[in-house]
Design a binder for these strands. Structure first.
Lengths: 225, 225
DNA sequence: CAGGATCCGCCGCGATACTG
DNA sequence: CAGTATCGCGGCGGATCCTG
C-alpha cells in the first residue's frame, strides 16, 4: 500500500511531475497563491473538486511539504516555501493557457482571483509600489494587495498594508481595463474606476501591465523556425 | 463518447491543464524538445510508457495541435509551434524538480538528453555561438547542437550546423563538468574533454552555465516571508 | 456547520497479446 | 516497425455519512 505512482526517471521534470501532476494539485497551489485558505474556502473556490479528493490532496501535499496546515480553529492551509516556489510553473502554464482564453465557455466558472493572478505574468517590471484593488461584485467586495517589486509582482487577497494607491470599482470595470484593453478613462458602461492615492503610481501601474497575450506570441516564447 | 475530462474553469492555468495534465503528455513534450522522433524512438526513450498509452497520447496531442505527424516512412512526430511554446512550462518544472535530484534512486532510468535539456535553465545569457557536444557512451556517441542566443539556449539532438566549437568526451566527463561542478581541467578519473574550435567560445561556454541549483533557491524564485 | 471520512461506479492507466 | 485489442486495477467523481 501507499506506493505512489511515479515515473522513475532521473530527470527534474519527471521528479516534479511525480509530486504535482495528480489532478487538482496545481489548481490547489494556484488558489493558495492568493493566501492561506480554510478547507471550506477551497471547496467553494475549486469548483468541481469533491471533498474526498480535496482531503486526499491536502494530505499528500502536506506530507510532501508543499502546504502547511496551521492548527485552528479554524485550520488554515498555506503554501510552504517549497510550494510557493511552484509559482513560475503555474505562471508559465497560465501564459500558455492564455492562448485558449478567448471566451468563457458555457459551464465555466469564473473567479476574479484567477484574473488577479494572471497579472503576475503581465507585469513588465520596473515599479516599486504597494497598491490595493477593491473589486465590487454583487453585494460584496474583494480586496487584493499588489506589491510591485522591480522584477516581480506579489498578489494576495487581503487588505494592503499602507498602500500608496487604492483602485476601486465594479468587477466589470477592472475587466474592461485589464482584460479588454479599454483605457480606464473610457469605462462608461462598466462603471468607473476610482482611485485614491498617488497619481504617479496610478500612471505607472497602467504602464506596468503589458497586453493580455491572447493567442499572440508570448514575450519569452521560443521562436521555432 | 469522446468527452475529455476538463476543469471547466475560465482560467489560463486550468485551460492549460485540460490539455497537458494527463499522464505522460509533458514527458512526451520534453523528449520531443530535442527534435522529431519516431514512434519506436519514443517507446525506448520514455521508459515505463506502454504502447497503448503512447499511441493514445500522440493521437490526442496531434488532435490538439501540440504535435504534428509527418507521414513517412518512417513517420515522425515533431512539436508544433504550439507544442514548442510549452518549453517555459517544462523548463520551470525542471527547475523546481531539480531540488529533488540529489541522487538517482534505484530503478531510475537515466538519459543524457534530459541532462542536456536541463542546461536550458542554467544558461545565463549573453553568448552567441553554435556548439556541438559529443557524448561518448558505451559503444556509441550522441551529438547535441547547442545554439546560444542572447537570452535563450536551443538544444537539439543532431549534428550542429557549422559549430564554432566542438566538445567531445565520455559521458562521465560531461557529468563531472556540468553536474558536479568540476573544472574541465580536473576531470582525470572521468576521462578528459577535448575541444576543437574557438577557445574564446569554450571559455564563454564554461562561464555561461550557472550552478546546478540543487536545493538552493532558484535565481528567479519568489522569496516568501 | 466546518472539516472531513466512507462507499460505490466508472474510466484512465498499466500490462500483455496480437496485427498489418 | 508502428501501432491495435483486451483485460484488471486503481485513481477519480459523485454521493452520503460521520464527528467535533
Amino acid at each position: 500500500m501507499n506506493k505512489r505512482r511515479c515515473y522513475d526517471q532521473f530527470c527534474g521534470i519527471a521528479r516534479a511531475l511525480d509530486l504535482v501532476s495528480e489532478r487538482w494539485t496545481l489548481l490547489i497551489v494556484r488558489n493558495l497563491m492568493l493566501g492561506p485558505r480554510r478547507y471550506s474556502d477551497l471547496m467553494t473556490e475549486l469548483p468541481g473538486i469533491t471533498t474526498n479528493l480535496l482531503a486526499a490532496r491536502l494530505k499528500t501535499m502536506e506530507g510532501d511539504g508543499l502546504v502547511a496546515r496551521t492548527d485552528g480553529p479554524p485550520a488554515r492551509y498555506a503554501l510552504t516555501a517549497l510550494g510557493a516556489a511552484l509559482e513560475p510553473v503555474v505562471v508559465e502554464l497560465g501564459r500558455w493557457g492564455a492562448k485558449f482564453m478567448d471566451q468563457p465557455r458555457r459551464g465555466d466558472t469564473v473567479n476574479p482571483g484567477w484574473g488577479m493572478l494572471s497579472l503576475k505574468r503581465r507585469y513588465r517590471g520596473g515599479l516599486r509600489a504597494v497598491v490595493e484593488f477593491r473589486l465590487q461584485l454583487n453585494g460584496g467586495e474583494r480586496r487584493f494587495e499588489l506589491v510591485f517589486e522591480n522584477h516581480h509582482l506579489h498578489v494576495k487577497e487581503r487588505e494592503a498594508v499602507r498602500p500608496q494607491l487604492v483602485v476601486a470599482g465594479p468587477l466589470e470595470a477592472f475587466q474592461g481595463w485589464l482584460f479588454k484593453g479599454l483605457p480606464p478613462g473610457e469605462l462608461h458602461r462598466a462603471g468607473k474606476l476610482t482611485t485614491e492615492g498617488d497619481p504617479v503610481v496610478w500612471e505607472a501601474v497602467q504602464v506596468a501591465f503589458g497586453p493580455n497575450d491572447w493567442k499572440g506570441a508570448s514575450a519569452r516564447a521560443t521562436a521555432s523556425p
